[in-house]
């Protein structure tokens, strides 16, 4: 796993974006960019060479699940790993995200350890 990889953090709450950014920095990832919902994230993803997306689900304009689907539908982005960090806790939503091709799912509130564990797992699987 390349610690210099380019990560996009998508959440409509700036406080949560800061928390995730800080946690990622503690884990050694310093190359992070932020977007406040799916509709701002998608053009950024299309224009920039991002390596990883951490996204919320419940956001205005374009929700995380729609962003995930848009990523999977775009030939240039479809292999991009996506980690969902959300308060959405319905089983059918988790299944929906899994079927849409999410790489990991974390429910809020979460801990720094959980974030580290899920990121490690995602890249272990991608590299194997």
């Amino acid at each position: 796993m390349d610690k210099g990889m380019k990560i996009l953090i998508v959440d409509d709450f700036s406080t949560m974006r800061r928390i995730i950014k800080n946690l990622l920095r503690e884990l050694g990832f310093n190359n992070t960019t932020e977007a406040d919902d799916g509709s701002t994230a998608l053009p950024m993803l299309k224009n920039g060479s991002f390596d990883f997306v951490v996204t919320d689900w419940n956001m205005p304009n374009m929700e995380g699940i729609a962003l995930l689907r848009a990523i999977r539908a775009d030939p240039a982005l479809q292999k991009l790993p996506v980690l969902m960090v959300t308060a959405e806790a319905k089983r059918e939503q988790i299944i929906e995200a899994a079927e849409a091709g999410v790489n990991g799912y974390i429910v809020k509130p979460f801990t720094a350890e959980t974030l580290k564990e899920k990121i490690d797992k995602i890249f272990e699987r991608l590299e194997s």
Partner: peptide
Amino acid sequence: IMMAQDFQDLTGQ
């Protein structure tokens, strides 16, 4: 302290 601030997102929703 930083993680405790996650309440703003959760209560905001």
